Amino acid sequence: MNVFAIADLHLSFSSEKPMGIFGDCWDNHAEKIKANWIEHIHHEDLVLIAGDISWAMTLDEVQEDLNWLGTLPGKKILIKGNHDYWWNGIGKVRSILPKNVFAIQNDSMLIDDLCICGTRGWQLPSHPKTTSDDIRLYAREVERLKLSLLSAPKNCQKKMVMLHYPPLSSNGDSTEITELLEKNHIDLCIYGHLHAQAHQYAFEGFKNGIEYRLTSADYLDFSPVKLNI
């Protein structure tokens, strides 16, 4: 089993939602993702999708996007992104997922010897535009990550975390989230959310033994990236 990742699919088969604001590279992006996916990923592989899966607003609207995802090779694990407005209660979400698509919320999944935890995250308190409401939402996401990490089986050999928002800024300063990851001996953390010029604010590489990877679709040229995990 190989493990791949890609975030920010921003699918919109049931409603027209162009992504051109982030550049011409987003033209026909779903077709690009599908072609690259089929070329590199096989039935036995695992694909982690770190949020912003669909522009749909309701569970009915998102079904076509999820079905499209279900037709692609591999087992998929999802977390919620800030634009996943259709994600309304984990029980309801799981009830409409294709059989090879799974969702994490306040819990985790064990696949072979790999434990996958995750949550959406939120804008960092250190961000210059952070408000008191952002700080409240960030604190809630920290608690949700704690629940996910607590649910991880004790016997897993490797542990990784999926976030939608970046867990740290480009300068690599520690945050509540990075400290939590270190305390729980996480091997790898993937995230998305950053597009176009915002790619420059990504932190990639190792910090205190944890590898961090940006997996936004446009950053990866719309091709899922193979992870070293």
Rank of each mutant, 00 (worst) to 15 (best):
G51Q: 05
D187R: 06
T130G: 07
D52P: 03
K17N: 14
L69I: 13
L168A: 00
Q105H: 14
Y201K: 15
A7I: 03
C189R: 00
Q200T: 14
I6M: 02
L59H: 00
F222P: 00
F13R: 10
N28R: 10
E39Y: 05
G70H: 02
G192A: 09
C156Y: 07
G209Y: 06
R213F: 13
T131E: 04
D113Q: 13
W122K: 08
R120Y: 05
S126P: 08
I116L: 04
L69T: 03
W122H: 14
W68G: 03
S12W: 01
M57L: 10
L227R: 00
D65E: 04
Q123H: 12
I41E: 01
E204W: 03
V101K: 00
H164I: 08
D112P: 03
C189W: 07
N88W: 07
G20F: 11
W86F: 11
P98S: 13
L150R: 09
V142N: 11
A198I: 08
E143L: 14
D173P: 07
N171P: 10
D134Y: 02
P224Y: 11
I33T: 01
A217V: 02
S174K: 11
D27C: 04
W86A: 07
L124C: 10
G205V: 01
M57H: 07
S151I: 09
S95T: 04
S15M: 11
A30R: 08
N36Q: 10
L78D: 05
E143V: 13
H195E: 09
G192P: 02
L214W: 03
I210M: 09
K129E: 13
H40T: 12
C115F: 07
I135Y: 05
Q105F: 06
K183R: 15
I229P: 06
A202Y: 01
L78R: 04
K34A: 15
K80A: 11
D84N: 13
F22H: 14
N228R: 13
H195T: 04
F206G: 11
K207D: 13
C115Y: 00
F102M: 13
L145Q: 11
D134R: 10
I90D: 11
R94Q: 12
M19H: 05
G205L: 02
I104Y: 00
I38P: 03
D27E: 14
F206C: 12
W68C: 09
